[in-house]
Design a protein around this nucleic acid. Structure first.
Lengths: 230, 230
DNA sequence: GTCTATACGACGATAGAC
DNA sequence: GTCTATCGTCGTATAGAC
């Protein structure tokens, strides 16, 4: 174990709490996965390069391809190494649950994940939006069935009048989108705030905002009070 | 004007109504922009290639670079050629408006745009999420100021009690995200439906879903009725 | 304006010394 | 396991004939 031309980039999460444990000494394989996750998060799959990942990890390029045979497989491994928590966070609705409690729990779990693993979250959510086509088959299948379960659950709630009448598939997408949009100011849209102001996100506030926005829109309309402007 | 090796891909929108006018004879420049828009929408900026765009347009590769000097500039031109309607659709909130009416109008305008220009919409919305860094400076500045105006408008409404108490920046992002998520089943997430089922989206239903979801969550809570399960 | 041929670089991946 | 050198491919972009 030599490598490491530039000691300043040995492991460099923005915050000690961010993503995987920043243990000073990490098995090389984990080290590469960690670096790859950050690079894929920043650049996206297509724009990311093996050289860039190697540089981030402080290794020469061939070392990366020694552990993972190709860029494609490395990306798949990254996905596989992070997928599990997202299954539980994004797809934890069950027909027996109480809707408000279950949806609150979903939002909370998602935001928690975003907080602890911002890079992994970016990678996974982008992959989701692109159809999860690169998820290893085993995961993809489990993902699909659990998506169907969640959609069925939402439909069940809608049918029983526990939720407003909406298309359950759109609804599931919207839940993810809302949870994401409430924490994505840091990642995206510098037009909204100053330039490159990667300021600390208030995750507690994000959770509250997302939950509020989601629930009040999901519950059956109680009384349609529309206050007019003074 | 010769080119056009393969007449089957002269111009090939899935639907005659989709994106720019499918006029059988289009100025070459427009033809390229049209093809580029589709390719960028499908592959994203990084993965798209000049060859691919040329093929889509039925032209040899250098012709594309004759009209637009580089891939970068071509992309910028695509953005510039489509940006205007999105300024009006995404950022049409004014402090004097009635919130419910204004927000309904926003959702309607966005979904309309998605319906008429699915490719352009994909390109623009992705660019937005990446920080709009490639928008030509002139547009970027106008975009920023109008974003600030809309955020101020939302804040104004929140302060006056016309909307629930929420962070206005998150709120603006969420509005866009909800509108998008209600029409994005076609583009994304084949895991939700069958494989590659690019079925026709019901845009009227999407509008209704998004509006319903958004408004009921935005309005000040009238009475917090929570129906328990039977 | 149109198009063939090609320059040039970057990237993914491999060979093979240590 | 680690790393230097390098190969083949494909990308953007250009030269220059028609």
């Amino acid at each position: 174990m030599k490598h490491n031309k530039d000691s300043t980039m040995y492991i460099m999460p923005f915050d000690p709490k961010l993503d995987a444990a920043p243990a000073p000494q990490l098995p090389v394989r984990e080290l590469i996965l960690h670096a790859a996750c950050q690079v894929f998060a920043h650049e996206g799959y297509a724009a990311a390069t093996v050289s860039g990942i190697a540089a981030k990890a402080g290794l020469p390029k061939p070392n990366v391809l020694y552990y993972f045979k190709s860029k494609d497989k490395l990306y798949a491994q990254v996905l596989e190494s992070i997928a599990a928590p997202y299954m539980d966070a994004c797809l934890c609705l069950r027909a027996g649950d109480e809707p408000v409690e279950a949806l609150t729990r979903t939002v909370l779990a998602m935001v928690r994940l975003f907080e602890r693993q911002p890079f992994a979250s970016k990678v996974f959510m982008v992959e989701l939006k692109e159809g999860a086509t690169r998820l290893p088959p085993a995961y993809a299948e489990r993902w699909s069935t659990r998506v169907r379960d969640s959609v069925d659950c939402l439909r069940h709630w809608v049918d029983r009048g526990l939720l407003a009448s909406m298309d359950p598939e759109h609804l599931l997408l919207s839940i993810w989108a809302i949870a994401q949009s409430c924490i994505s100011l840091g990642w995206q849209v510098p037009a909204l705030r100053g330039r490159d102001q990667l300021e600390a996100v208030d995750y507690a506030a994000a959770t509250q905002t997302a939950t509020r926005l989601l629930l009040q829109g999901l519950l059956p309309a109680p009384a349609d009070i529309r206050r007019k402007r003074a």
